[in-house]
Nucleic acid binder design. Structure first.
Lengths: 116, 116
DNA sequence: TCTAATCGGTTCGGGGCCGAAACGAAGTGA
DNA sequence: TCACTTCGTTTCGGCCCCGAACCGATTAGA
């Protein structure tokens, strides 16, 4: 069954979650970083820089920089593909999985708390 | 009735909307800007810089800069308070209302399209 | 072998955002 | 009148991000 959400509720939801992210202590991800990170965890492996760039419709440096920043935060890691050493395999981390678990819970909680 | 949304669906929803925003032609707002903008349109008027800063738990320059950027994009406007000329009243615009209407519709549409 | 294609990363100039602190303008109170 | 407070804005040094172009490493193909 599809999730029912009126436009006004949807806007309120987006606001509540954004606000919670801003007020949280962790540095908030940009919209691009969020879409990259979630794609890595929701889509089937393996992920390459080029594949992610194509999938998100952005340029390569965007992915490289996002991986740099999120790698520094321990949310993802990189590994050379042993089969084709030109490729870089983007890998999930425990920290990243926990982070996204919290994000999913946050969105779900804010949705549950919406007024009808 | 509360909106039912499992954590996995919630994450997928956040991803789908973020991705749509990134791929859209309009420059995507930062998380902070989004929370400022939506607050202006969802909370009752009038809005001042200080009030918004306190409400979002951020410093004043954050609001000033967000208003600069979003003002340039025609999403909000500023006006001196004639009663107390120290205050700046943050005002809504037609463009801003349309933008948020599209955002609300987008979130609602992505929610409706979620797999069960 | 040796050129050409493909990979991720880096460089470049330009711009935005960050918080702390200082700023000028405007109102307040004695 | 003259401090003092309260506004929003600006400055500062630092950091991140942008796309286009270029880079070295690696692989594929003739």
């Amino acid at each position: 069954m599809a999730v029912q959400l009126r436009a006004g509720q949807a806007l309120r939801l987006w606001h509540d979650v954004s606000l919670a992210l801003v007020q949280g202590r962790e540095p908030d991800l940009s919209t691009r970083q969020a879409s990259v990170l979630i794609a890595i965890y929701l889509e089937p492996q393996p992920h390459t820089v080029r594949g992610l760039a194509a999938r998100l419709g952005v340029t390569k440096p965007v992915i490289t920089r996002a991986l740099d920043t999120m790698g520094r935060q321990g949310l993802v890691s990189r590994k050379r593909d042993p089969a084709d050493r030109r490729n870089v395999l983007v890998q999930r981390t425990v920290n990243g999985a926990l982070f996204l678990e919290r994000l999913g819970d946050l969105v779900a909680a804010k949705a549950a708390a919406l007024p009808s």
